[in-house]
Amino acid sequence: MHTERHELFSQLWEQYRSVTPSAERVHQLLAERESRPIVNDHIALRTFNLDPVGLDALAEPFLALGYQPGGEYHFEAKKLYARHYEHPDQDAPKVFISELLVEKFPEPIQATIRNLVSEVDPDRVRRSDFPYSGRPWQISHETYLMLAEVSEYASWLAAWGYRANHFTVSINHLDSIQSVVEMNQLLKDQGFTVNDSGGEVKGSPEDLLEQSSTMADRVPVAFSDREAVIPSCFYEFARRYPKADGQLYTGFVAASADKIFESTHERRG
Results as ranks from 00 to 15, higher is better:
T3Q: 10
T3C: 00
L8T: 02
F9G: 03
S10P: 02
V19P: 00
P21H: 04
R25G: 01
S35T: 15
R36S: 15
D41P: 00
A44E: 09
A44V: 11
L45A: 06
F48T: 04
P52T: 07
L55V: 00
A57Y: 12
A57R: 13
E60M: 11
P61K: 07
L63F: 11
Q68Y: 00
P69A: 04
Y73L: 15
E76A: 15
E76F: 12
A77Y: 11
A77P: 00
A77M: 11
K78D: 15
R83D: 02
H84M: 04
H84W: 08
D89V: 10
Q90K: 14
D91T: 09
D91G: 12
P93H: 06
S98Y: 04
S98L: 10
L100N: 00
F105R: 04
E107I: 05
P108N: 07
I113F: 01
R114P: 05
N115V: 02
N115F: 03
V117A: 12
D121G: 05
R126L: 08
R126W: 03
F130L: 14
P131F: 04
S133P: 12
R135S: 03
W137T: 01
Q138F: 07
S140I: 10
E142D: 14
E142M: 05
Y144P: 11
E152P: 08
W156T: 10
G161R: 12
Y162K: 01
R163P: 02
A164K: 00
A164C: 01
A164D: 00
N165L: 01
H166V: 04
F167H: 14
V169C: 08
H173R: 08
D175M: 11
I177M: 08
Q178W: 06
V180Y: 09
E182F: 00
N184P: 12
L186V: 15
L187G: 10
L187F: 12
K188L: 15
G191K: 10
F192D: 07
V194I: 12
N195L: 12
D196H: 11
G198E: 08
V201H: 10
V201Q: 10
G203V: 05
G203H: 03
G203W: 00
S204C: 05
D207L: 03
E210I: 05
T214M: 09
T214G: 11
D217V: 06
R218M: 13
R218V: 14
A222Q: 15
S224R: 11
S224T: 14
P231S: 06
F237C: 11
A238E: 13
A238V: 14
A238Y: 08
P242Y: 07
K243M: 13
G246P: 04
Q247W: 02
Q247V: 07
L248V: 15
T250M: 01
G251P: 04
F252R: 05
V253W: 00
V253I: 14
A257H: 01
I260P: 06
I260K: 06
E262T: 14
E262Y: 08
S263A: 15
S263K: 03
T264C: 10
E266I: 14
E266G: 05
R268T: 13
